[in-house]
Amino acid sequence: MKIWPIFKKEMLLYFTSPVAYVVFTIFLLIVGYFFYSIFAFFTVASMQAAMNPAMGRDLNVTDGVMRPLFSEERKSGTIELLLTYPVRDGAVLVAKYLAALTLYALMLFLTLLYPAIVAYFARLELGPLVTGYLGLVLMGGAFLAVGVLASSLTENQIVAAVSTFGVLLLFWIIGWSADNAGGVLGKVLAHLSIIDHYDGFAKGVIDTRDLIYYVNFIALALFLTLRSLESRRWNG
């Protein structure tokens, strides 16, 4: 499997184009603002409170990360070269997904600055911090997987971005109707919610149900992406 060279190329493209810098700057700016306002207004020295809204920002920022994935390659035609190199579609997909995930993880790594500031003034609970970040990686991974899928379906970046946003928003708010539906349906809806599964991580709990949810979510989206990549070989 030639994942490494393609992974390297993706990372190179993130950093030679303005993508990485713009995304990092905006992300840190917004996280910084949230961090400040939460501490200033609520005077709660709790990372749990600071990390919850971090999720809202992911939704916007992951869009910038996943954009160069497949839509761009389809639009510029580079996909035609990439897919005629002796590399399996699966390797291309995994390399691209891992590159996007790595960039996202780097972004999260930079936000460690804020807990560090808290730790300077107060005692920081390490447990919830670690699980919180684990949860953010998993949830961001799920967001990115949807982004990869959407970008593999269309060469139009706006279509890709809007459909990613729509799908994620739906998974975000699907839990709201759980109470109304009640019964088994309500349970199913509540379980589908992409956000409810994060709560445990923010509190410092690693629940296998949440882990399995995110892993399944990512696996399903990547599987569909692989099918969509292969579909060009179906319509002979």
Binding site: I6, K8, K9, L12, L13, T16, S17, S76, P86
Partner: peptide, 16 residues
């Protein structure tokens, strides 16, 4: 890839 430089690009192709 318009955002890549010539030599690294060729190196990438050769590696792939």
């Amino acid at each position: 890839y318009s955002d890549m430089r010539v030599a690294p690009y060729l190196d990438f192709v050769a590696e792939v």
